[in-house]
Nucleic acid binder design. Structure first.
Lengths: 335, 335
DNA sequence: TTCGCCCGTCGAAGCGCTTCGACGTCACGC
DNA sequence: GCGTGACGTCGAAGCGCTTCGACGGGCGAA
């Protein structure tokens, strides 16, 4: 292993000068810096991560806690993970992966051992048991999603409430008067996952405001469940002409089910979704949707974290504005 | 921060004794060990990861390199990631996530800075450019998948060749004489991804051996592509009665397409797949399939790694035997 | 010319832990 | 009764890096 003293010797300077030359934390003459850089390059010098962490009390690693549980759409999580890793690397940090199952003990462990400098949490619940711990930890944290009581914590997410509203408003503008929301699996609501509830709130509020008749149906993430929900929907609300889907895996099966039940999309039934654009575009009938900007959320989360690490104050709440894209699945209400 | 000297003081022993008592690397009297453990617990002592890594030259972190590229089925990757993290934790290790995009430079970085003790690589290509680097690295490595030239490296994977064979054999036993393989997207073959090619080999070999007529069709991972492939299949091989699918996202669309083209599954057409059991079971017609045991592969990979870290010799190749589960999608060849 | 200051560099002191060698003690065998 | 281990514990020496204070030399201001 080549160490800093090796570089120092080769460059004809002291180890501390090498450190300063490479980190830029003190002014070093152009000439010396070049010599140090050359020496480092030629020797293939890589500072030992542990030694650096010990001396500087910075590990340059952030923790990312991901949910691997039922009811969350895996591709969204993965896209998110990818964007966090990429963004972290841009800031010269690496990412340590923790699973939700590790629980609070896992968070405490990586924070207290100084394995990581900061943490990002996904899948935050409305009453998340980890909140007190996060407050007591001395490390900066960013949460994806909004718990009920978030004071003092930094949160970021798509503005799901407004996303729900946008979908309804869009349908209302097209003249639809009876709408339904096909939501996440029941367990997601039972857990009190914030974003799912916010969609419901937005959906309901916008429907009320517009004087629409509305209903909410949770739905398991299976094609069979989608078919059952489709049937129930038509039975319960025969006048239904607009549907909002907030449940990626059932979006396609649901549209299929409607089609099979004799309803044309968008001829008889308009469908909008809250899902990644990629999914919305890939369907036979491209679906009008509010995008789920996982990559953007991940990126911003990392940037917030870096600012906090740098000692800057950041806003407690960051709500990414929803963007609705019209596609082929919505049309004016049939006469 | 509470450090080892704090624990030592409280327990009335020296720091080294605390270290030995907690690590068990030297015999310590029952009585002393208990005192140390109590002190550590009461103070909430957590050894500083950097300091430990520096002194012991072990970081207790392993790197996991995941593919975030086109043509790989995300849920499979994620399940794999989950099992690696869980297994690593059982061995008191954490997982640092790297993306394929980081490339060789990323591997070298985490290895040379001693950030990680060992590495797991997913999505290995037949002629993977990273092989020479892995050989030169001083850290143990396990690869998921088999490159062409694997001497000196440890690999593990499902036995895809035999998996392909099993599917054909199953169809052959049921009397089918004309079969087709619907495979991964073209780019996967172009890249030379080992497992995809092995399935083709197994498929072809078994068909030849059994005297079956066979054809191979790569297929994009979209429903539209699935429909096109279904049509082409029926056009090119009118006598077709058996299909093997090795492409998770198109499995359902493909069956739908066949149904729409007037073929009943399994009445007119038997379908088998190589995919996670979960997916095979979730379809309207549960599909006879060879399981993709991602969790098991991940777990075994970690165990191999730990054995190598412990200095043990491990087999270079580990092939997990395929397991075919009969479900509703295969039946004897129609008369 | 002299004083003071800043720039560029060095030396040394840790960061918190592991580990090696050493040492005292006790039990046992001869 | 004494040598001999084995056992349990301690002290000290690092692991490789960052960082703080100090210092010499050059330059501008007085």
């Amino acid at each position: 292993m080549v160490k800093i003293t090796d570089v120092a010797r080769r460059a004809g300077v002291s180890p501390s000068t090498v450190s300063y030359a490479l980190s830029g934390k003190r002014p070093i003459s152009e000439e010396t810096r070049r010599r140090v850089e050359t020496a480092a390059r030629e020797l293939g010098y890589r500072p030992h991560a542990g030694a650096r962490a010990l001396a500087s009390s910075r590990s340059n690693v952030i923790a990312l806690v991901v949910p691997l549980r039922a009811g969350i759409h895996v591709p969204v999580v993965m896209q998110f993970v990818g964007s966090v890793v990429t963004a972290a690397r841009r800031h010269d940090h690496d990412v340590l992966l923790l699973t939700q199952e590790e629980g609070e003990e896992g968070l405490r462990r990586v924070a207290d051992t100084a394995l990581v400098d900061a943490l990002i949490l996904m899948d935050v619940q409305l009453h998340d048991p980890r909140l007190p711990l996060l407050r007591s930890l001395d490390r900066p944290t960013v949460m994806i999603g909004f718990p009920k009581e978030a004071d003092g914590l930094t949160c970021i997410d798509l503005d799901f409430r407004t996303a729900g509203e946008r979908c309804v408003d869009h349908l209302a503008q097209l003249g639809h008067r009876v709408v339904a929301l096909v939501g996440s699996p029941p367990e997601v609501y039972v857990r009190g996952t914030a974003f799912a509830q916010r969609v419901v709130q937005g959906f309901t509020a916008a429907a009320d405001r517009g004087g629409l008749v509305c209903a909410v149906h949770p739905c398991e993430a299976t094609p069979a469940a989608a078919r059952r929900v489709a049937e129930r929907l038509l039975r319960d609300q025969p006048a239904l002409t607009g549907v909002v889907v907030h449940n990626e895996p059932v979006l396609e099966p649901l549209i299929d089910a409607f089609t099979r039940l004799g309803l044309r999309v968008p001829g008889d039934l308009s469908v909008t979704a809250i899902c990644p654009d990629e999914l919305a575009e890939s369907l036979r009938v491209p679906v009008t949707s509010v995008a789920l900007p996982s990559a953007e959320v991940g990126e911003r989360a990392v940037e917030l974290l870096m600012e906090k690490l740098g000692g800057a104050a950041v806003p407690e709440a960051t709500l990414l504005p929803p963007r609705l894209t019209r596609r082929a699945s919505t049309a004016p209400r049939p006469a």
